[in-house]
């Protein structure tokens, strides 16, 4: 009976994984760790890391505060970036090509209510993550298929012009700080 030589089992993921990790603190003080490849998907964060001169040695000791993004959105964003960190560079965004099917994993991740999705888009915009913006755009855009303007108004939470006018009127009628 032959004996298999003992070799350490190394997961492919570990081999590819860059050991450098960064710490991010959300606006509500949740702490997240994110790998270097993943954080590079956010232009804002990567610029910050570069400007702060964070390195493999000091990264974890210097958490990066992100005032504009709460923990819930940051969690989604970190998951997304980790998932897509090894994606190949996509050709220039051809946004009207409908043949592109959003991967099931991402569709699940973005299956949240619209208010949350809009919050996530604001956070994504702030952190400048183009790929996540593209995916959110597809989710929002697909909602408009075969809908009437009235249905869209409800889906996107937009007040009617009359409601909008009423809101504006009440805002201008309310007494100001001095009134």
């Amino acid at each position: 009976m032959s004996v298999e030589p003992e070799v350490p089992i190394v997961q492919v993921e570990e081999v590819r994984e860059n050991p450098v990790l960064y710490k991010i603190i959300s606006s509500d003080n949740h702490v997240f760790t994110i790998s270097e490849h993943a954080v590079k998907l956010s232009k804002t964060l990567w610029d910050l890391i570069t400007n702060l001169g964070l390195t493999a040695e000091n990264a974890l000791d210097n958490p990066i505060p992100v005032e504009n993004v709460n923990g819930k959105n940051m969690e989604t964003i970190v998951q997304f970036c980790e998932r897509h960190k090894y994606d190949e560079e996509e050709p220039e965004y051809t946004n009207y090509i409908r043949e592109f099917v959003l991967p099931e994993w991402d569709r699940q991740l973005l299956s949240i209510d619209n208010e949350e999705l809009f919050q996530l888009i604001l956070a994504t915009n702030y952190l400048d993550i183009q790929k996540l913006m593209d995916y959110c755009c597809r989710v929002i855009g697909d909602m408009a298929k075969d809908k009437t303007p009235e249905e869209l108004r409800i889906i996107y939470g937009i007040p009617t012009d009359a409601e909008d006018d009423a809101l504006e009127r009440s805002a201008s009628d309310s007494p100001g700080p001095s009134g």
């Binding site: 009207y96 809009f118 888009i121 915009n125 929002i140 939470g157």
Partner: peptide
């Protein structure tokens, strides 16, 4: 409450570019 019209112009542009007529 946040609505579509509160999103940045860059997102609206992207959405319109993705949308059909």
């Amino acid at each position: 409450m946040l609505t579509l019209t509160d999103l940045p112009f860059s997102f609206l542009d992207q959405l319109l570019a993705y949308s059909g007529f």
